[in-house]
Design a protein around this nucleic acid. Structure first.
Length: 298
DNA sequence: ATCCAGGAACTGT
DNA sequence: ACAGTTCATGGA
């Protein structure tokens, strides 16, 4: 075995890597990373280079191994920043917990998953595609669609007889014909939405940087909703999972309704008022609240 | 078989 | 602005 390079990534307090791994391993159909033995392995682009990293917890921090390359300092820095963003290290979780503990039901929720941080989808195109594929279908089918999509249009790398996948590039998706996606069981609408969005991104008419640069998430929400195929649910989902908006709670989400029903031990699905009441129960932290509710469904 | 799933666009009021 | 309809298919 040749010696493998590794770097450490300092973690904030509190942070529970295992809780994030639970979230990452929620579907066996996942193609963009793999979780085993307390490690997550993921392939990433650095320009056109494919970098395979493996992350595990080590003495309170994270250790990142580079499985297929000797990383330059530039790559090491890129990966450290990537991981800090992936697990949302910049947020002060204690502020969330301090507010959450004032609400009985929410306190129960956050105590169960202490140290869980939002597992981000940092690529805007990937976040939008995932949300759109997930519209109106159950999670299993969403993963089936997503997996087929990646295996058809994404690149991959082989390591120790195992394939690791990358999300397709915007230019690739922009060049797909809607009929091709219909063969993968996309609806006509979803096929059009995704191709159109990839076109916007590849022509630089839409970007993650542009959406977050002002810090005005209300403006970002409006911009997102103006895109065909993106409604309030998708916009809030992307604000939460990709853009780092603190207070984006996808009110329309059926999964969140189920989670609230279980949390409050209701017999029926919660009504509009109840949902809004919970969504606003930790002011300024709707995104974290939603993510913890998703986690509670696993 | 029947119902519904981590919605959104479209149409008619 | 708002309510009803359509899209479209796999899971439970």
């Amino acid at each position: 075995m040749k010696n493998i390079s590794a770097v450490k990534v300092q973690t904030p307090e509190p942070f529970n890597f295992k809780e994030c791994l639970v979230y990452l391993s929620r579907s066996p159909l996942e193609r963009l990373h793999s979780v085993e033995n307390g490690c997550v392995t993921k392939l990433l682009y650095f320009d056109d280079e494919k970098i395979l990293i493996q992350i595990n917890a080590l003495q309170g921090d994270l250790e990142v191994k580079f499985l297929n390359c000797k990383p330059s300092d530039e790559i090491k820095l890129f990966i450290q920043n990537y991981i800090a963003g992936w697990f949302d290290f910049k947020v002060d979780l204690n502020r969330f917990y301090n507010l959450a503990e004032k609400v009985d039901a929410v306190d129960r929720l956050v105590c169960n998953f202490r140290g869980l941080r939002i597992v981000k989808i940092q690529c805007l195109l990937q976040a939008l595609c995932w949300a759109i594929m997930g519209q109106q279908v159950n999670i299993t089918f969403a993963y089936t669609l997503f997996g087929r999509f990646i295996e058809t249009y994404g690149e991959s790398a082989l390591f120790q007889n195992k394939k690791y996948w990358l999300f397709p590039k915007a230019e690739t998706i922009a060049g797909i014909k809607p009929e091709d996606l219909r063969h993968l069981q996309f609806t006509r609408m979803k096929a059009e939405y995704i191709i159109q969005i990839a076109t916007l991104i590849s022509s630089d008419e839409l970007s993650r940087d542009e959406l977050i640069k002002t810090g005005d998430f209300e403006m970002a929400r409006k911009r997102l909703v103006s895109i065909r195929g993106v409604g309030p649910w998708t916009a809030n989902y992307v604000l939460m999972r990709c853009l780092g908006a603190p207070d984006a709670f996808p009110l329309e989400d059926v999964g969140l309704h189920k989670a609230i029903k279980a949390l409050l031990r209701l017999k029926e699905k919660p009504d509009h008022k109840t949902i809004e009441h919970i969504a606003k129960s930790v002011p300024g932290w709707g995104s974290y609240l939603a993510f913890y509710l998703y986690r509670s469904l696993l």
